[in-house]
Write a protein that binds this DNA or RNA. Structure first.
Length: 232
DNA sequence: CGGCTTTGACCGGCGC
DNA sequence: GCGCCGGTCAAAGCCG
């Protein structure tokens, strides 16, 4: 796989800056350990894009991205953070979503919303011999952000395993699907590049980690008490 | 040899 | 009802 970058960012500002406190079920954000230690930048907003969050009720929390580097380790590969938005917002076509227009254009967002992102209970799956995928009624919290990077997979502190790649309509670049390798953790993320600008990477996180980044490659047991964010 | 990626097939949801 | 589409599975191959 291509070299992973370092996502040393400040996504939890999502929480701190949100005008509406997101529900506790929101997914832990990348590199949450580092994030916890970073002071939230609440000034200098507005020059670097729009960050949005959503809960699984479809709520929208428009935020402005401070100038926090969303940088891969190959520093030259990253120039600036450019956006952060929930797909729900994009799909809803809200004004906030339009503010993150590049994200909207980069993600064939309707599919993220209505199709196989959500799962029903295991009962239906058991009806079929194959591990049939069925939809959940409840949505997992999702976060979409956009960075300019030469590498597809940013190092967010977690370990991911690629389980699929798909060419999506209206996109020149295939979308890659990753799943957290930690046992009992069903967090997924999608990575795709903008058609308009192949250096722009759209990363969508779905679900929440049941472990800390640092414990990711450990014995597989949960360490839900070791990080404040795991209580989310 | 184990873990990971690749890739084609399959499935269900949605729009028409 | 049908076709399109995104998302996932799983076998095969690759790599350290």
């Amino acid at each position: 796989m291509e070299g992973s970058g370092q996502l040393d960012t400040c996504l939890p500002s999502l929480y701190g800056l949100s005008p509406c406190a997101p529900p506790s079920s929101l997914a832990p954000l990348p590199n949450q350990n580092k994030l916890l230690q970073m002071p939230l930048v609440q000034e200098q907003l507005g020059n670097h894009g729009v960050m949005l969050s959503s809960d699984h009720h479809g709520g929208l929390y428009p935020l402005l991205l401070p100038g926090i580097p969303f940088c891969p380790s190959s520093a030259a590969a990253c120039e600036k953070p450019t956006g952060f938005a929930p797909l729900d917002a994009v799909e809803a076509g809200t004004s906030a979503a339009k503010a993150a227009g590049e994200i909207a254009s980069a993600t064939t967002a309707t599919t993220c919303h209505g199709s196989s992102s959500w799962w029903k209970g295991p009962a239906m799956a058991a009806e079929k011999g194959r591990a049939m995928k069925v939809r959940r009624k409840m949505r997992e919290p999702r976060f979409c952000f956009q960075t300019r990077s030469d590498v597809d997979v940013l190092d967010d502190g977690y370990k991911w395993r690629k389980y699929g790649q798909k060419v999506v309509k209206n996109s020149l670049h295939p979308r890659s699907y990753y799943r957290c390798t930690h046992s009992n953790c069903r967090v997924k993320k999608r990575v795709e590049r903008l058609s308009e600008d192949c250096r722009m990477v759209i990363t969508t996180y779905e679900g929440r980690h049941t472990h800390t980044p640092c414990s990711d490659d450990a014995d597989g047991s949960d360490h839900t008490g070791s990080c404040a964010f795991t209580s989310l």
